[in-house]
């Protein structure tokens, strides 16, 4: 219903209005999948929301220059979620503890807890592989690393997770 309303409205619009209608359609379909992706990467509702919100703003700003908004958006979200962990190891450690304490649910989540023990790149590779179901080429494009690095990172991540999850 909403899609039809947007499409009908677009018929009478031009220029920037069309951009906004196209973007609104993209926003409606992408917002919750991106929130889920961000949540798996940060385990923090607040950081997820910040990352997704910033990424949508960036996508709209670059809309006319982007060929594949979904890929651009995914890359932006992953980059922002990773930058949250970036500065120093201590900061990362502190934020992970905060994220665990503030997590969205009080119910134990062994997978999410295990992910928090992984370095950021390994966590991203695991999430992109087993949640987004991307192949190594696509993951390499998202993270800006070679496919060989994707494979070795995934190998290390699985070894680490095996030790954590048993």
């Amino acid at each position: 219903m909403m899609q039809n309303a947007i499409t009908a409205a677009a018929a009478e619009l031009t220029g920037d209005d069309i951009v906004h209608v196209e973007f609104a359609r993209f926003f409606a379909t992408a917002k919750q999948p991106m929130m889920r992706l961000a949540f798996l990467l940060t385990a923090s509702p607040q950081q997820s929301e910040d990352a997704v919100q910033d990424s949508f703003i960036r996508v709209l700003e670059k809309w006319s220059q982007i060929n594949d908004p979904a890929s651009y958006m995914r890359r932006a979200v992953v980059n922002r979620c990773m930058s949250w962990h970036r500065h120093t190891a201590v900061v990362r450690r502190t934020q992970s503890q905060v994220a665990t304490a503030d997590s969205y649910t009080d119910q134990p989540d062994e997978i999410l807890d295990a992910l928090l023990h992984l370095p950021q790149r390994r966590r991203a590779v695991v999430v992109l592989t087993y949640y987004e179901h991307l192949d190594t080429d696509a993951i390499g494009a998202v993270l800006g690393i070679s496919t060989a690095t994707v494979r070795s990172t995934l190998h290390r991540a699985l070894a680490q997770l095996k030790g954590i999850l048993g």
């Binding site: 906004h20 973007f23 609104a24 926003f27 409606a28 917002k31 919750q32 991106m34 929130m35 889920r36 992706l37 961000a38 949540f39 798996l40 509702p45 997820s48 929301e49 997704v52 919100q53 949508f56 703003i57 709209l60 969205y104 649910t105 989540d109 062994e110 997978i111 999410l112 695991v126 999430v127 087993y130 949640y131 699985l158 997770l161 095996k162 999850l165």
Partner: peptide
């Protein structure tokens, strides 16, 4: 392990909050 990850991540993802942001705000 891979099966646990696929299923566990899908389950964990459902715990993500809804985005409280309107397209107009963007």
């Amino acid at each position: 392990l891979e099966e646990r990850l696929s299923e566990g991540l899908a389950r964990s993802a459902t715990k993500a909050p809804a985005l409280i942001l309107a397209v107009g705000e963007v």
